[in-house]
Nucleic acid binder design. Structure first.
Lengths: 356, 356
DNA sequence: CTGAAAGCGCTTACAG
DNA sequence: CTGAAAGCGCTTACAG
């Protein structure tokens, strides 16, 4: 059968069934006051014409699009891809679809996208924002009353539900492990300073030092830049070239971590041998490296699922109290975390010895 | 300013400006017959009320939602994430948004999602389908007349634009490289046999053998399963346990490749030493492994951009001739591709020697 | 150049 | 229980 050029409308169903359009609507929407005969006649016509209600028209009439606007900085970041996947599955099972937009880390674009999605009358937002302080974004958020779930962000003055990671616990465990092994020069490379994730990771870092009885962080090097491979690469290169380079590095996410590995590689240094390494975010390839890389793991998909659940609950009960759900992180100890080598040779010498 | 509970409508703008709603619409849509005074009065009211036309109402009236339905099997697969990113950027710059759905590799779900998206009146589809032969999916596709761009699939009887990868060239180069190094037992692990990608890769594999003067593929082991980490793992384990295991493995995508690496690891074998390895799809971590892993690279984002361009062109010119754009793949030679070792020791012995 | 009317495809009070 | 009417918020022929 050739595809019909036009989808049939409720009027055509009504004509075929010999009833009023309103009756077709009631029959399809399980209205209580519909006689069995009416229902049967309608259903027959619906089947014959393969009628499907126009979602657009329903949305306009009902004031709900069953659509969620989802903004991430970059869907090709595996973390966001995982979150979107989790959210999509949960939302889809409730009849909601996702309009996905990338902000590319640009707060202006972020604010613009919020506007576009609002104009498209989404029923809710799930937002992974770049910054917690950008005024354009905040204005765009305040400028609308649709429910919002924020991912790993806390924004003063904007009352929303949120899903957060407990970064500090995982990072504290990682830092403790390094301190116990004897590391004192630990370099921590984090992205943007303006986000909860960075603050929380640093908190864990400092907590571990305090618990270890070290109150001064003078020997600690903290690099703050962006959550990107290139920043990780440049920051690592820079600290390695110092007079007194770190014996251990913690990279605050997998992009930074890849940059760190690339920089170590370029310097002829091996992780877990010349420099101990912990990367925040688990990726199977990190476990397959030689030696396997220690990580602080978290469940991206779970964050997506929980965000969807919070949003669905909020849309059902707009006035219920706001909720923040905190998801755990876990330090996984692997071969890249070892005691510092005291007899450090130059990079070149080390390489020559290792690969004769 | 508190967010208004209701978005202003065109009527309210008209009332404030003291004109008819139709005039507001004309002024906003740059209709030629609008006096400068009218335009000015309307714009003033629009500014004051911060009016934004309801996209939903416009869509219903104009018969176009400026929305594209995008189905992938799994957005957390980096390949699809890259494709979606490329497409989203191109579409967004033309005022189109993406409704994203995951099929989870289930053809039934795929067909269902096509229906959902059709009901939502998307203006076009970009589809990364699981199978080229599933009858449910084919019926869902034939059952509608919205433009479709297929990704790396060719479906008989469904006339669509398409973006394809030239897998065969990259795989042929990889295979040639292995043959020239002396490999004769090459294992090729591909996913589903029902897709163009698999067929095309096998074609390249066979072409390289033929060019090398080997017409019989008796010594070649081809494993066909799914494009998943677990299949890669199991298939690799199986072939390694044969009496006459392969000296080289080509994994048809990065999921399979990760599984292969894990299996080699479990057997105490090293890639680029005990077994040569080529993985289809480049990932930076593969370059950072020791030794770096040879790959067949392709540009996922580019596929997304081109798909969006084809779809936009098709929506503008529904009757123009169908197009298929073929994107290149490139073999990148790295340390995991070496001559076969003739003095193969047992896995345990090899490991003992390597790590004294 | 402007306004009143019709209509996109639905749903839901309102009569009967 | 069913149908005719109104209306969601727009746009666009149609008059004037």
């Amino acid at each position: 059968m050739a595809p019909s050029d036009q989808q049939p409308t409720i009027k055509e169903v009504a004509r075929l069934a010999g009833v009023a359009p309103s009756s077709v609507s009631r029959a399809l929407n399980d209205h209580p006051d519909v006689s069995p005969e009416m229902r049967a006649r309608v259903m027959e016509a619906v089947e014959e014409l393969r009628y499907e209600p126009d979602f657009l028209a329903q949305s306009l009439r009902l004031g709900s699009t069953r659509t969620i606007g989802f903004i991430v900085s970059d869907i090709s970041n595996p973390l966001f891809a995982g979150i979107v996947k989790g959210a999509e599955q949960e939302l889809e099972s409730h009849g909601y679809s996702i309009l996905l937009m990338n902000s590319l880390g640009d707060p202006m674009l972020e604010a613009k996208h919020i506007g576009v999605l609002r104009q498209r009358r989404v029923d809710g937002f799930i937002l992974s924002l770049q910054s917690e302080t950008n005024s354009e974004t905040l204005r765009a958020l305040r400028n609308q009353s649709t429910p919002v779930v924020l991912l790993d962000r806390e924004i003063r003055g904007v009352a929303t539900d949120a899903v957060l990671f407990d970064h500090s616990t995982g990072v504290a465990e990682a830092t403790s492990a390094l301190l116990k092994l004897g590391h004192r020069k630990i370099n921590f490379i984090v992205g943007s300073a303006e986000t909860r994730g960075s603050r929380d990771r640093l908190k864990g870092f400092q907590r571990a030092y305090a618990a270890f009885g070290i109150s001064s962080l003078d020997d600690v090097v903290i690099e703050v830049g962006s959550y990107s491979r290139d920043f990780g690469f440049e920051a690592t290169k820079m600290v390695l070239e110092r007079d007194d380079p770190p014996t251990a590095i913690i990279a605050a996410n997998s992009q930074i971590g890849v940059g760190t590995l690339a920089a170590l590689n370029e310097h002829g240094l091996r992780h877990g041998e010349d420099v101990s390494l912990v990367i925040c975010d688990d990726v199977e390839l990190l476990r397959l490296m030689d030696p396997p890389v220690s990580v602080v793991a978290r469940d991206a998909e779970k964050m997506g699922t929980v965000a969807a659940e919070l949003l669905l609950a909020r849309m059902q009960e707009p006035e219920s109290p706001l909720r923040s759900v905190v998801l755990p992180t876990l330090y996984i100890h692997r071969g890249s975390t070892v005691a510092p080598r005291n007899d450090r040779r130059t990079a070149t010498a080390a390489r020559d010895i290792r690969r004769p």
